[in-house]
Design a binder for these strands. Sequence first.
DNA 1: TGTACATCAGTGAACGCGCGTTCACTGATGTAC
DNA 2: TGTACATCAGTGAACGCGCGTTCACTGATGTAC
Lengths: 208, 208
Amino acid sequence: MSHTLGIRQAQKQKTRQALLDAALGLLEEQSLSSLGLREVTRAVGVAPTAFYRHFRSTADLGTALVEEALGSLHPMIRTTVSTADDSGERIERAVELIARHVDAYPAHVRFIARERHGGVQPVRNAIREQLARFGQEVKDELAKDPESAGWSEDDLLMLANLYVDQMLITASLFLEALEGPAEERERVAQVATRQMRLISIGREHWRS
Amino acid sequence: MSHTLGIRQAQKQKTRQALLDAALGLLEEQSLSSLGLREVTRAVGVAPTAFYRHFRSTADLGTALVEEALGSLHPMIRTTVSTADDSGERIERAVELIARHVDAYPAHVRFIARERHGGVQPVRNAIREQLARFGQEVKDELAKDPESAGWSEDDLLMLANLYVDQMLITASLFLEALEGPAEERERVAQVATRQMRLISIGREHWRS
DNA sequence: TGTACATCAGTGAACGCGCGTTCACTGATGTAC
DNA sequence: TGTACATCAGTGAACGCGCGTTCACTGATGTAC
């Protein structure tokens, strides 16, 4: 039998989500360090003081947004990296996946790109931790690949982080291209694919 | 004969520079989009209204900081990329150069990393333009290299931008390591060197 | 060189405004019996 | 099922404060003769 939340709990979660959504919208045009608590509650339509029932501060809300933006991506990344088909196709599929993710969640991607080096330390730390997890996970999947025979753990992690950084750069370029014509997005996809391919060629010929 | 600035002009430039310096200091712990004009003037010790004699807004000050942070780097990058010696040594020298630059100008590097995707559009644009110039310049130098025979202009630019992005990532990692122990900085240098080397290996075996 | 006037970087008072945070509250929901 | 009490998400008034911007000003520097 499914556990139904009480009415009170359900309403609270709804308000909390509304605050997160409103904040994410406002953050398209500013940084977290200038986001005001009153702005957020005004956008939702609740009293400023209601904010404190859910978050200690806007920085606290920011770390919740990091979890929302990156927390659910881990399985997706694992399967994308691990799927064993032709290396060239795998890269094209990865780039395609990034493009679709940026289309579907532009505000989340923008938030991560912006706050990764932003002015709010707890949020930077939360993002860094998530990206480090991505790095480890990509490393784990790469390790299973026969191509990784003879690779040290350090070198595998070095390569994994190179891929992760490259994915982020690509996502951020797709984001910029969202407002432009479709050709621009196609150009970004082609450049990203060739860069990933070049890295993969480097991997094939690597001797530690 | 050298042209001496009038006393008035000299004093004005001095105040302007003091505003830029103070802003850069304040931006170590926040984003430009939350930097207040009064904060800056207070830090310098002038009246808030004096700000308007030099900048229209904090966004305007931001674009001036972009020029200060990146404008003088073009010759340095050109010579680093173009110097023709062993490829492995060139990479080590480049990483070393980045490390020293981060040591010498940590606040400038932080500012660029933070505002590249920050909440102030004119500043993002100014940074994008400077980085695009870096990409073109690196491409020009790579083109002179005998290794680039048979490479299309597009592929050379793709590779050049890969190097530029990699330099930025490396600079940002050195920045984080600044507060840590010396071993951490050494680790960053080694990882960055190997990543650059892997990219260069990819370059050697690239077939368009 | 000296004088009379123009320029303009920096001042200081004043303004209206939105901010984060506190506090006691209300009334719907939850719980014990 | 009905009743009496507890919980707690959201309210609304109030606070002191710093913000960006305006304006007329001052007095050192610059310029014309």
